[in-house]
């Protein structure tokens, strides 16, 4: 899957519209979902990957939402970039696949995107690893003493 614009191809329609108005529609949905989240605490995800947004639409949407105070990168099964937009509770989540190709892109309306949080299963495994490390360290300290 790629988000490379058809317009970048020499055979692409020359008169294809750059801005389709899709960004306006997405923005309206973000606004409605954010309002709902603020009132009810119902988180939401808007999947952008398969939406027929042109490159210009995407740029427009990204510019409107802007960048806020938090930016996160994740290195797990490839690279991910996540940032809170200038609207608190509205997050841009972008996962990269092979190379620099965007594999999925979504807007999450939540206090923090799900993928940023530590999963209980990972924490249990981490606790076991950390306990083993502590045991190993104390054995070593006793041996050295």
């Amino acid at each position: 899957m790629t988000l490379a614009p058809a317009s970048s191809h020499p055979h692409a329609p020359r008169e294809a519209p750059a801005l389709t108005g899709m960004a306006d529609a997405v923005l309206a949905e973000v606004a409605a979902r954010l309002e709902d989240y603020a009132e009810t605490g119902r988180a939401a995800t808007i999947e952008l990957t398969a939406m027929p947004l042109t490159t210009e639409d995407r740029a427009e949407l990204e510019a409107w939402l802007g960048r806020g105070e938090v930016a996160v990168t994740i290195e797990s099964a490839g690279h991910s970039e996540i940032w809170e937009t200038r609207f608190s509770g509205v997050w841009f989540v972008r996962h990269f696949g092979e190379g620099d190709r965007i594999a999925t892109e979504s807007i999450e309306i939540a206090d923090a995107p799900l993928i940023v949080r530590s999963h209980p299963a990972d924490m249990r495994a981490a606790a076991r690893r950390l306990a083993a490390l502590c045991a190993d360290q104390s054995t070593r300290t006793r041996r050295d003493a």
């Binding site: 797990s76 979504s106 993928i115």
Partner: peptide, 13 residues
């Protein structure tokens, strides 16, 4: 589990 979530996001999309 982040890898699972990421893969699942990819497939759901």
């Amino acid at each position: 589990r982040r890898a699972f979530l990421k893969y699942a996001s990819y497939v759901s999309a």
